[in-house]
Design a protein around this nucleic acid. Structure first.
Length: 173
DNA sequence: CGGTGGATTCTCT
DNA sequence: GAGAATCCACCGA
C-alpha cells in the first residue's frame, strides 16, 4: 500500500479536460486503506459514493468534499480490496496559464487536494475512469523521488495517527 | 425520510 | 486564527 503511494510520488498527472492540457508532478500523497482503516471512506464497506475504491487498481476515485471541492484518489488495492492514494498536492509542469485561469490566482495552484482538482478540471465525471485511458492520465515521472518524508495524515477526523502521508522533499512543511 | 458531516478552501478580522 | 460556504450520500429511525 505504502509502496503504491511512494511510486506515485514524482509521477506526472496529465489532464486534457476542456481541450487544454495541464500537467503536474505529484509531490504529496496520502494512503488510505479499507475496512481496517477508520479514516478511509471504504471503512464501512462499499457504497454508491466510494464504489470506485473497490474497483481495479489504476481507477480514479473522485468525490466531493464539503459540498464544494473535489478530491482525487488513485485506487491502489487489488479489486475488491479497497485502498486508494489521495492526491494532495503537486507542482505545475504544463499548462500553468490554464490553471491560473481556472484557479483565479497566480499562485497556490495545486498545493491542496481541492486546488489540485480544480487546476486540472477534475470532477466527479472522472470518477471511475482509468488513469491510463481516460481524459486524465498518470505517467511515470522522469525524476525519481528524492527524499520522501512521512507524517500523519491531515484533515482526518478518525485514524489520523497513521504516518501515511508522503511528501516529496521540496523544502515544504 | 430528514438530519448530518466531510480526506477543504477562501475571506475577513 | 476562525468561520462560512455548500451538496449529497449515508445513517438511523
Amino acid at each position: 500500500m505504502l509502496e503504491a503511494a511512494r511510486a506515485l510520488l514524482g509521477s506526472i498527472l496529465i489532464s486534457d479536460v476542456g481541450g487544454a492540457r495541464t500537467a503536474v508532478r505529484l509531490i504529496e500523497v496520502e494512503a488510505y486503506g479499507g475496512g481496517d482503516d477508520p479514516a478511509s471512506h471504504a471503512f464501512r464497506g462499499p457504497t454508491l459514493r466510494n464504489r470506485s475504491m473497490f474497483g481495479p487498481p489504476g481507477t480514479f476515485y473522485v468525490y466531493r468534499s464539503y459540498g464544494v471541492h473535489w478530491c482525487a484518489n488513485v485506487v491502489a488495492g487489488l479489486e475488491g480490496t479497497p485502498a486508494a492514494v489521495l492526491l494532495r498536492a503537486g507542482e505545475p509542469v504544463q499548462g500553468r496559464e490554464v490553471m491560473e485561469e481556472r484557479r483565479g490566482r497566480p499562485d497556490h495552484l495545486t498545493d491542496g487536494p481541492g486546488k489540485l482538482c480544480r487546476a486540472l478540471a477534475l470532477t466527479g465525471e472522472h470518477d471511475g475512469t482509468s488513469v491510463w485511458e481516460g481524459p486524465v492520465r498518470l505517467t511515470e515521472g522522469d525524476a525519481p523521488p528524492g527524499v520522501v518524508a512521512a507524517s500523519s495524515r491531515i484533515g482526518v477526523t478518525r485514524g489520523g495517527d497513521l504516518p501515511w502521508r508522503l511528501v516529496l522533499r521540496t523544502g515544504w512543511r
